[in-house]
Design a protein around this nucleic acid. Structure first.
Lengths: 248, 248
DNA sequence: GAGTGGTCTAGACCACAAC
DNA sequence: TTGTGGTCTAGACCACTCC
């Protein structure tokens, strides 16, 4: 069963072990490419390939002209079990803020609001016509000044109120405003995929292309119909999704 | 915002577009490395790097000595909303089988059973001592003859019955046996992470190291205490996790 | 035996950091 | 100015497939 490892793979595993064991601590600089090439007796491109793996794993960060540094073990952002609860909204917190509050990190968002046609995918989820206008809220979300997720929210214009169309939706966020506007939410459906960031996502998330990301689609519904779709892209290395499911 | 793309990145994007657009269909062979190197006027190693990306995305599969082939777009295995329900178990289906039944694919498992000490991580989740013996069930799970996930289940020996210690736990699976044995399940907690397959996982999943995977930990509990922990590794490109959450 | 993908080499160039 | 990481080149070797 044990297949042959490539030399680059072996070196990557070796370095990974050295980092995990603490031989190189957070913030430390790894030996230079030339140094490692000599130590392992391989070409420098082979070292580069090994380091590529560590970078993809988020273990290490290369800074051109300076060195390759062990990344600080940044805390995992655990999605909170109560992040969609009315109690949290009543306390003035939205889903992201609830996660932040539970995890003890500092949240921040940059929001832009626009309108446009729903398009096919969103229309199907919202059960409306693809040409129907929707309110689109783009958010870039930070945890302690690191970009950690992107979210785009779609809401039929027919349902939207003026307070939903401004960047800051106030305490409890969009869901609180929806319930106030006479749309009590009864159900959330979340669909989770994992993949790799493409060039544009990587730029928005301030990482390199190929970084592992979660892609989550949440549909919030009232008893009658879906009212909001939220497409979220999260840095996988920073998140842990948590679901508490009652047996039935 | 638009940062500079490397040449390999550009070529990867170009080929990706050609595949998506249907210029290369499922099962087609891409031009050879030499051919592509000539066409794009780059060294063959640059083509190899570009193809590496497509392979990591699961778009393409390289067969040494033969060629690089566009992979058949295999269906996404959507985790079923009712996969943990008693109704499904009463119909003789476990969680994996329920997903299969809902999605219309054919499930198969290979199971090995052993016992051993819980170890720290599992012990904490099960709320027992790390030295306490647990029943360990290793499963390799197939969908239509492709390995798609690995699962290891941990169960305190104190709770286990003889029927839980054999490879085939019978209709409804382990959870059905647990409930029969007087441990009615009230709650499941799932924690989801995403990452990259290491060398060993890749071998077990019959892919290449670096493939994106879900890592899911499920803790099944009775009203009194946790009774089972299941650590699941799934090929991310084959799965979509679905959660249906009532508002509260 | 010819051709292929997967891997590695030795060397090069560039943009950038550090001095 | 020097050294670094990131990228690419031209060429090579191997195991493998296909003929």
């Amino acid at each position: 069963m044990a297949e042959r490892k490539s030399r680059a793979q072996q070196i990557a595993d070796d370095l990974r072990g050295a980092i995990r064991s603490g031989a190189y601590g957070a913030g430390d600089r790894l030996p230079t490419r030339a140094e490692l090439a000599k130590r392992y007796d391989v070409a420098s491109a082979t070292i580069a390939a090994a380091i590529d793996q560590l970078r993809a794993d988020g273990l290490v960060e290369g800074i051109t002209g300076s060195g390759v540094y062990v990344r600080a073990h940044r805390p995992v952002l655990r999605s909170a079990r109560n992040r969609l609860s009315r109690d949290e909204r009543a306390a003035g917190r939205g889903a992201f803020t609830t996660d932040a509050h539970t995890g003890g990190w500092t949240p921040r968002s940059e929001v832009t609001v626009r309108t446009g046609p729903a398009g096919e995918q969103i229309a199907e989820l919202l059960d409306i016509a693809p040409t129907e206008q929707v309110l689109i809220r783009d958010r870039v979300m930070y945890a302690d000044d690191d970009v950690v997720q992107l979210a785009t929210s779609y809401l039929p214009l027919a349902i939207a109120t003026p307070e939903m169309a401004v960047p800051d939706t106030g305490p409890g966020g969009l869901y609180a405003r929806l319930e106030e506007a006479g749309h009590p939410l009864t159900r959330y459906e979340e669909t989770v995929r994992a993949g790799r960031a493409d060039h544009d996502e990587a730029a928005a998330l301030a990482t390199t292309p190929g970084t592992t990301v979660f892609r989550l689609v949440r549909v919030a519904s009232t008893a009658e119909c879906p009212v909001e779709v939220n497409r979220i892209t999260m840095l996988a290395e920073r998140f842990e999704l948590y679901y508490d499911l009652p047996a039935r």
